[in-house]
Design a protein around this nucleic acid. Sequence first.
RNA 1: GGUCCCUUCGUCUAUCGGUUAGGACACAUGGUUUUCAUCCAUGAAAGAGGGGUUCGAUUCCCCUAGGGACCGCCA
Length: 465
Amino acid sequence: MSKVATRFAPSPTGPLHIGGIRTALFNWLYSKNQNGNFFLRIEDTDKERSKDEYKKQIVNSLKWIGINFDGEEYVQSKKIDDHIKVANELLKKGSAYKCYCSPEEIEEQKKRAKQKKIPYIYDRKWRDKEETDAPKDIRPVIRFKSKIDGNSILKDLVQGNVEIENNTIEDFVILRNDGTPTYNLSATVDDHQMNMTHIIRGDDHKINTFKQIQIYQAMEWELPFFAHIPLIHTIEGKKLSKRDKASTLNDYSKIGIMPDALRNYLLRLGWSYKDKEIFTLDESIKCFNLEDIGKSPSKLDMSRILSMNEFYIKNMNENDLFSQFVEYCKEFKGEIKSDKRDKIKKALSFLKNKAKTLEDISNNSQYIIVDKVNFNQDDIKLIDEKAKRVISDFSSQFSKIDQPTREILEPVINGLIKSHQTNFKGVGQPLRIALTGSKFGPGIYDIILSLGKEEVKKRLDSKIA
RNA sequence: GGUCCCUUCGUCUAUCGGUUAGGACACAUGGUUUUCAUCCAUGAAAGAGGGGUUCGAUUCCCCUAGGGACCGCCA
């Protein structure tokens, strides 16, 4: 068989949601697993709704999550002439015909069908009529002459054999009355011309597949393999759409979900490999297959995305984490000043233990990032006279230390606990509030060491006064 | 309404006729800990219902119920 080729074919009519990303991911993984190619095709033939910004967003989204397509992106609207050519060929072969029903006439029929509660299907009025009967004032559409008798079987790589009665598929329009091709025609011609071997797409395309197969057959083109993957559902159990909140990539990147984590989550949503949960990029390419894609739709689970992200934060290379964090802040939180970067990089080793997202790291590192401490109004009340004496005592002893380390600081703190007849909290809490503005935060030694001697001194002294 | 698809813990899933039905997330409890966390341990939690087939069904078949997708001169 020829080299495996898959494609992702979104229409640029809105932001890509993560169901689309997963479809792209599966296509990409499968092609890479098979040593094949993966292509991007922008289906922009709906001129009304297609927008260039969405196209850019799609390309960026794929790039963000690490999916890179082979070759140039394929733009469907540039191939319209080819699609029309095929429509005319189909006409010549007798596999398609001109239909002179006006849009109003069709609408009327649909309305009537709905009233009678019977399923609407185009009545094939012009299928066998003579051209000479054609009304002069109506521009015809071209319809595909669908099979009427018998059944068709789709050998789906995920769903197995799916059988359908041919007469439930209507004579669908392939060329509109303005002469432009419709989706099923364009997609089929493109897939053929791009030499696609595997069409992996959402379940919602299954009926289209039955239509498209008939075009392949009429043109005597070699059929690709088809795999229809179950859709991703919302918590409510409905098909995910662009309008759902927390559905686009940006919804995740802006709260500090990392590409690798989301990729790993999406991979395991509807696909499994025994009990394995964590897949590096290479592992996912190596392990991925179509057989282990589940048949039932799966729901999006935010807590799982978060925990996956948390795992990556804790286990990834710290330099990589740092650069991703810097990038994240630059885009969503404001750039970190260069003199703070080193401090944050060092602090990451403990900061990451408190974070599920990059946003958490950002929040928890505010005490380093800001020049002036932001005090929590409730917590600052905890610094009473007694606490001030602790801070003052610590401060004067701290001044004498040249290069603070945990080993040097521990006896100092312990000494204060004794001399003030208190416990660790009695010393640690005032210091933490004075240094970070909050009673919650990293360990007190971590705070002191990460801030550096001068900054600690400055913040403590401003609190005693 | 028609056609098609799906159904194992709350969620994602493992199981390719014989298991105390396993794992992960979330949840609960306990422990470690200077706060918040982390970390560790433990626990609760599932085969939609009904018929078959079989020595034996979560697994194969049928029916019912529930859920979903599609039914555009959108893609």
